[in-house]
């Protein structure tokens, strides 16, 4: 049997983490190919239902990543994202989702290596954890 390859949906902000992902790519850093990037203008516009929808529709984990605190292009979107992720973590773990399946990181535009590392580490963690709790159920 082939090794379990997780699917990770990553909501990344246009100004920081998307640029970092771009940098990691152009610098030819080695990254696990398990991540599906979704480019958002800001982590502050990642609606909780996007995350829930991803986890219910086959994603084994969700990564939300944006600018470092104080660096937000829109001043405070990442602080709002942090509260939403806190809220989601409380809700989802209560119903048996492992807390490692939802991750928020700060990755600046110049941190291509940091992005590659974050992705590789997360893929490794999720491989260890196994398929998402909701990926097998027939309910969306």
């Amino acid at each position: 049997m082939s090794e379990f390859e997780p699917t990770i949906v990553a909501f990344v902000c246009n100004w920081c983490t998307y640029t970092a992902a771009d940098l990691a790519g152009t610098a030819r850093m080695v990254q696990s190919p398990n991540v599906r990037l979704i480019r958002m203008m800001c982590t502050g516009m990642v609606d909780p239902k996007y995350v829930i929808k991803a986890l219910l529709s086959g994603a084994d984990a969700v990564l939300v990543s944006g600018c470092h605190p104080g660096d937000c292009h829109y001043i405070n979107g990442n602080y709002k994202a942090r509260r939403r992720i806190k809220l989601l973590t409380e809700i989802l773990t209560g119903f048996g989702f492992d807390e490692r399946r939802l991750k928020l990181t700060w990755v600046g535009a110049s941190e291509g290596n940091e992005f590659a590392e974050t992705v590789n580490k997360m893929v490794e963690d999720i491989k260890e954890l196994g398929p998402g709790e909701a990926t097998a159920i027939e309910v969306m």
């Binding site: 909780p48 239902k49 829930i52 929808k53 219910l56 086959g58 939403r84 809220l87 989601l88 809700i91 989802l92 119903f95 909701a134 097998a136 159920i137 027939e138 309910v139 969306m140």
Partner: peptide
């Protein structure tokens, strides 16, 4: 993808999203 899909769909998504909106 899963061999079967419960209809109506988005039931669980609805309840979890509602919790995200109004639980506080």
């Amino acid at each position: 993808k899963k061999g079967a899909l419960r209809m109506p769909t988005d039931t669980m998504l609805y309840h979890l999203t509602r919790l995200a909106h109004m639980s506080t």
